[in-house]
Design a protein around this nucleic acid. Structure first.
Lengths: 130, 130
DNA sequence: GTCTCGACTTACGTTAACGTAAAGCTTCCT
DNA sequence: AGGAAGCTTTACGTTAACGTAAGTCGAGAC
């Protein structure tokens, strides 16, 4: 293990994704494996990027967002301005996630109280009692 | 106000939806306004159903799910077996929502700790330091 | 009569992230 | 030579919930 280059199959097993997914990410310019003839070979760099992509997905980042963030890091200055921009993006996303969670919590409470209140979730529609 | 029949425009304003939405719901058999010539007129029943549809949407029910639930209620026995089925569906959805919230909370915590730990969300990829 | 307004129908477009089918290389094995 | 495996490319299909454009129609307003 810890080889330098992985085939598509090895990548799929290592990250639990399908070949289609890897080719799709490549078509979206999120990763760019080298070629041995026509076959793809994934480098350490690709593995790092894929790790970040999947992590980003867990956080709810869209692929396009991740592409932009990754590209920022390709342009050098990891220590400076671009890093701040990435952090800012992360903070924004965090805020979104928190709001989403709050809304979800509200909906949960509301639904739960409906259920407790006699399970009459459909109370609003009675065939015109007057 | 409290008229018996509403035009599509009045419905849109009352519920803050577009005409397209109402026609779409109708095409999906969620509501079924009567006709005055070719114009749609929405009854009290339609308003009740729309109220439930929109409430369901807030809870994350899909339109198809709502259609099924609403149809259960059209088949009579509000007091019996069908009600239980609706309640069961609501409980299931509630469980889904709670799980979703838990996952979201996990992701939030994870992202927050990444940010606090030096904001190195992208720490995983360093250009191969060895 | 002509214009215009609102409503109507039909039907294609949108978004995201792949799934899936079709058909063609290369290798490797026998 | 003749598969079989595993890779490749191309390109259409999927899902949800509408948006949007195009063209039609009936009813008042002038």
């Amino acid at each position: 293990m810890d080889q330098e280059l992985l085939t598509i199959r090895e990548m799929c097993e290592a990250f639990d994704v399908t070949p289609r997914t890897l080719r799709f990410y490549e078509s979206k310019e999120l990763i760019s494996p080298i070629r041995d003839g026509q076959k793809r070979l994934y480098t350490r760099r690709d593995r790092g990027r894929l790790t970040l992509i999947l992590r980003g997905k867990r956080f709810g980042f869209a692929l396009e967002e991740m592409r932009q963030l990754l590209n920022l890091y390709d342009r050098g200055d990891q220590k400076g301005e671009q890093l701040k921009r990435t952090v800012a993006a992360a903070r924004e996303r965090l805020a979104q996630m928190e709001q989403q969670r709050d809304e979800l919590t509200e909906a949960i409470d509301e639904l739960r109280s409906q259920l407790e209140a006699g399970a009459e979730m459909l109370a609003a529609f009675r065939p015109a009692a007057e």
